[in-house]
Design a binder for these strands. Sequence first.
DNA 1: TAGTGGTCTAGACCACTCG
DNA 2: GAGTGGTCTAGACCACTAG
Lengths: 251, 251
Amino acid sequence: MKKDLTPSETQLPRYRWLADIIRDTIDRGLLTDNQALPPERELAEHYEVSRDTVRKALRYMEERGIIYSDHGRGTFVSPTIVRGTTRFIDSFSQDTGNRGGVPGQRIISIENIGASMAIATLLNIESGTPLVRVRRVRLIDDVPVGVHDAHLVLPRGSRLTRSQIERSGSLYKLLTAQYGFDPAEAVENLCAGAADADDAQWLDVPVATPLLICERITLSDRRQPIEYCLMKYVSSYRYRTRIARHSDGTR
Amino acid sequence: MKKDLTPSETQLPRYRWLADIIRDTIDRGLLTDNQALPPERELAEHYEVSRDTVRKALRYMEERGIIYSDHGRGTFVSPTIVRGTTRFIDSFSQDTGNRGGVPGQRIISIENIGASMAIATLLNIESGTPLVRVRRVRLIDDVPVGVHDAHLVLPRGSRLTRSQIERSGSLYKLLTAQYGFDPAEAVENLCAGAADADDAQWLDVPVATPLLICERITLSDRRQPIEYCLMKYVSSYRYRTRIARHSDGTR
DNA sequence: TAGTGGTCTAGACCACTCG
DNA sequence: GAGTGGTCTAGACCACTAG
């Protein structure tokens, strides 16, 4: 168990080490919805870290929707409905797994293309720049739930093969490991749409069926656009998210 | 200008005061996309605060997608595409204003009802608990773009009138000011759907038109559910969001 | 190697909540 | 008033980036 390792053994900063311990405690059900954590000063003493480090661990968890703090009252475990709503960049495989489904994919095509004007504008690159386009049907428990159409900016000469993607569960993990693809942030735009003939075929629904359309632009650590992805989902697919702030900036 | 006020005059914590100054600098175009901010130590000296306070201001802004920091390189202004994608709980009026539209509403009905079993389960209350149900058509520049169906848990005896809501631009602002309604966090679930006869009438679209469906549960500071809201939007409406994390927890 | 952000500490005081 | 989280400080050292 993580608990038995010292922070230096885990190679993690102390606040991450502490966050993992607390997270574990919650995941094991020893602390449940809206129950209070020990006070910060107590945690600091018990784990032999400064109070500031405790606070860093708590803020780290709060950002992820695991706990929340109330001034003057204490720090509490977030209700189940909130925990686990944090969105990550490689969300599909992740989310699906978290919800108890088996994520899958069927590759429609992999092409080396030049950026169209529309895509070039979105990605802030020259039109005609070489891109890799990957189209996939996404499955949950072998049922098609969505189509992904990704346009990737990869280093010159990168070659992506069907079998590579198929072997690796997650396209992102593959790209990160093999091609230095390093997503830091993404912007998403969601709206309603209707299935066209292609969508209908791949998703096995009638033409004009309502679909959830999600456009994503992914940025590298230097905030250069490295991917444009158009995703369309059938109505049974749920996109979950969490909002933690009021517009007055409070909390 | 805020710049000329001392932190104590603004009644804000120093880190918020500093964040506002930097934000202002960016908004005025003195610092633009991917440009570097001064180093933390320099900001600390210049504004006569500790480096830790500077860091707190920077983290506050980073959470909101205004800037980003890279270890060893510096801190930079987020590209325009990213800035302003932060979602807030009272998003409709806010977002619409930010995008240059004029937000509006047409109230369909205000009812005092008892919680149905479905709603009661979602809100974690007894079925039959008194709720206020507010149905509204949301407008942008006087064009209907969505319908909101809110079920509110308000203190006993609260009375909500049409004219009150109409006078106040934002329902949330009214509830907060008048009824101690204090949203701290919200969970949203998005999916695709089709317009039913009612939707079609209010949104002025054919029945079965694809709609973006967004269900929201709003929680109080004590993380008690205080609202369930079902929102449906026509396909021209864009729901924008930002994802800042990779699933390995890095950054 | 110089410069940057990231982690960590120990201590002080403020602001809020609740009995 | 006692206990909690929130802000702030001054200083140290580590980790990463780039010329």
